[in-house]
């Protein structure tokens, strides 16, 4: 259950919670672009990553998210990171001047570049995921859906069913917990009839899973039929004009945050594009650190 609650909306009244969902999505995209702006000197990249990290922690404190639970959640995907690290360590970028770190055998060696690349990717991934999780933890799923619908509004011109898709997403969000409950109930019912979900060979396990999936599907069809009846009975018609109970509203907060985010991202982009090879340590302290 831990992995499900992680990244879920947490009801709180912070500054970040109060921002409009549309601005938060835009900020997320901007910040992700910022994180991926490249710098050619490795120490500069590292320093910027550390700055982003500090900013991230400030953001987390502001939005009342616990960094530890985030870290736990992210580390539960350790296999993904392990995979990435191994790839980057053992497959060095041929364009870089490689300094040998350790020679296993004639064919296998670890280079500095690989280690540095892996570490850098690791940091950036954590930054990106944490930002996304801050978005989902501070924004009601329904508001997120409405915000996405708002961004997709121009697509209505080409007859893209924007409203229908938003409605589908919000119904899916509504029914995910119901289905989890249902799955658990069915599992208990089948277990009481002697189906064992944890032991046995592959064939036995497949049979156990099928005994879960078939009743789940039947119940899903029944649910969807009843749900569509209920929606129709309450006058739902996707093609006619509907008003909205929840209105997204931009506030002054959004404006100030936008000014801050755009300035920051703009500055980093300028640095990366115009001075991509800047060596921050040399620039500030006049010391060359390299290898």
């Amino acid at each position: 259950m831990n992995s499900i609650s992680f990244g879920r909306y947490v009801n709180y009244d912070s500054f970040v919670h109060k921002l409009d969902a549309r601005s938060k999505i835009l900020f997320l995209i901007c910040l992700m672009i910022m994180i991926f702006m490249p710098f050619s000197v490795w120490s500069t990249s590292l320093i910027f990553s550390l700055i982003y990290f500090v900013l991230l922690i400030v953001l987390m404190i502001m939005s009342h998210c616990s960094f530890l639970s985030f870290l736990k959640g992210i580390l539960s995907m350790w296999f993904l990171f392990l995979f990435l690290i191994i790839i980057f360590i053992f497959v060095p970028n041929p364009n870089m001047s490689s300094v040998l770190l350790y020679q296993f055998s004639d064919n296998y060696a670890i280079y500095w570049d690989g280690v540095y690349q892996a570490g850098y990717i690791f940091l950036r991934l954590i930054l990106m995921m944490s930002l996304t999780l801050i978005l989902t933890a501070t924004t009601k799923p329904l508001d997120l859906t409405y915000a996405l619908e708002w961004y997709m509004t121009p697509l209505k011109i080409i007859n893209f069913p924007v409203h229908t898709i938003a409605m589908m997403i919000s119904i899916a969000l509504r029914f995910i917990p119901t289905f989890l409950d249902e799955a658990q109930r069915i599992m208990k019912a089948q277990a009481s009839r002697g189906v064992d979900f944890s032991r046995g060979g592959l064939f036995k396990k497949m049979k156990a899973v099928i005994s879960l999936i078939i009743p789940l599907f039947i119940s899903a069809f029944e649910k969807s039929q009843q749900l569509s009846d209920a929606m129709e009975a309450r006058g739902y018609d996707p093609n006619s004009k509907r008003s909205k109970y929840r209105k997204l509203k931009f506030h002054l907060k959004d404006l100030f945050s936008a000014i801050f985010v755009f300035t920051l991202v703009g500055f980093i982009m300028y640095l990366s594009i115009a001075h991509g090879n800047i060596d921050v340590i040399d620039f500030v302290f006049g010391v060359k650190v390299g290898f």
């Binding site: 009601k140 009843q226 209920a230 929606m231 309450r234």
Partner: peptide, 18 residues
Amino acid sequence: NQFISTTVEDDIAFGLEN
């Protein structure tokens, strides 16, 4: 199966929106 929206207030509002 007739609770359409994600919260109580949104669900009461569903028919009104329609």
